[in-house]
């Protein structure tokens, strides 16, 4: 055999082996993640967590998010778009997963805003101002207050609520649930309890669409 042929074959074998191992590993991880999620289905949603969309929708997206995470911000309008494309069929549940330094403060602010019925407006404003308060090297979550003018939160009330046991416990609950269901990165999505195994816009879209198809 020619030397060139030998090397080409060797390279092809290596690449095919790599690709095969990748597929095998990912399938294994996917079934493992599904088992974990199935065992912990009850932890994905709790009473009182922020939700959006038709309460009777048959498809539920649970998103564990960190307000300081750029990818969460980027996915936010995309999830909204998926909901708009399937009106009334999708419900969105948000769970806190404050992984970045400074996020814990902002998450309790969001939870305090939720108690005043202003979670979604505050979340939009928080994402919009992300570059102001959430620099990863030097997060300054208190700067967020200046960016919330249009939301119309009562400043004093919100600050009091942030210290309240209910807010503190709800945040703790989300963090504990997130750890149990394997939400170690943000955003982590579950669609009707099924984890999004391979991360990406298109993967999320196809998972959501598959669930919509089978439910309606």
């Amino acid at each position: 055999m020619k030397k060139g042929t030998i090397v080409t074959i060797a390279a092809l074998v290596l690449i095919i082996f790599f690709a095969g191992a990748t597929v095998f590993y990912q399938q294994q991880q996917a079934s493992k993640a599904e088992t974990v999620a199935r065992h912990n289905a009850a932890l994905l949603e709790r009473d009182g967590v922020p939700t959006k969309g038709n309460p009777d929708a048959k498809v539920t997206i649970v998103e564990f998010f960190d307000p300081a995470c750029e990818t969460c911000k980027a996915f936010h309008p995309y999830v909204q778009q998926l909901m708009n494309e399937n009106p009334g069929k999708i419900r969105l549940v948000m769970r806190y997963a404050p992984l970045h330094p400074g996020s814990d403060y902002v998450v309790s602010l969001l939870e305090a805003a939720k108690q005043q019925g202003k979670f979604w407006e505050t979340l939009e404003a928080t994402y919009a101002a992300q570059s102001v308060w959430a620099s990863h090297g030097n997060p300054q979550p208190k700067k967020l207050w200046m960016q919330l003018g249009r939301v119309g939160l009562n400043l004093k009330k919100t600050q009091d609520l942030m210290q309240s046991p209910e807010v503190v416990n709800n945040v703790k609950q989300d963090i504990a649930d997130g750890q149990k269901v394997g939400a170690s990165k943000t955003p982590t999505f579950f669609v009707n309890g099924k984890p999004l195994v391979r991360f990406g816009y298109e993967q999320l879209r196809s998972l959501v669409e598959a669930e919509v198809q089978s439910a309606y």
Partner: peptide
Amino acid sequence: DWRLIFACWLLAAVSMLGSLFFSEIM
């Protein structure tokens, strides 16, 4: 000589793909 260098190359390629598998896939 060629075969020995080819064997070295194979080892290096396997090491590269293996390490990429550990970091990028796993």
